[in-house]
Amino acid sequence: MASENGCGLCKIKVDKIGVKKGTDVLLSDVSFELHCGELTALIGVNGAGKTTLVKSILGEIKHQGTVSFESHCGQKLSKITIGYVPQHLDFDRSAPISVEDFLMIGRTVSPVCFIKKKKISRELDEILETVGCKDLKEKRLGDLSGGELQRVMLANALYPTPELLILDEPVSGVDASGSEKFYEVISDLKQHYHMAIAMVSHDLGIVRDYADNVVLINKSVLKSGNAKSVFSSDEFSQSFYSLSKEAEE
């Protein structure tokens, strides 16, 4: 399902990721591939290790295994640029920091309070338009709605242009229209940027509508494939429906 800019040939290989905490095994032997121009959903029950997996890929926790990038011509890179949109940004909402300040921090070494370069300012206009936040540049971060904030976080994650974009339950706690808008932007990005997208999500409806591939995990990979094949698998019903049965009982 390659799109116009994503050739579908570049791949990010998550190879045999394993994480232990003391004697507990949080993840073992997790391997899958992410392709550019595709959205891969990581699903699993609570405690299945989704967040641990994201942290391993980001390199924030010690893990076994590797994450590598292979371009369409077979060239390998061990270090890739990863854009990350966290689940929920905890920050002081009264802080006098504008969207422009925030997005400019990573793009310039000169202090954003003194110098606002016109070139960067124009780049910000473009990126804000891409994420559907055109008129928000002057707004304070604390004045944004949940959906707007997540799209600004997305704009932040798109610089420098990542090979892999990771979304960790990006719209939990965001209202329905905000959530819909967010995924419209993601679909658009998938079309126009040359990157792979990995998304952790609890919302199986969203996964069905937007994901090209689904990886079901519980400590290790139980099943992967397109949404339809994963949702109709035994592993999927065992993971999710046994839980709902327990809850009913």
């Binding site: 990350y84 940004l89 905890d90 002081d92 802080a95 925030f102 990573g106 070494v109 954003v112 309070c113």
Partner: peptide, 22 residues
């Protein structure tokens, strides 16, 4: 010194984890 560390301090003041991830 301020001119050199301002941007870093600003992003740390927003969120430490976010700053570390950048």
């Amino acid at each position: 010194i301020w001119a050199f560390i301002y941007n870093k301090l600003l992003i740390i003041s927003i969120n430490r984890e976010l700053a570390a991830s950048r």
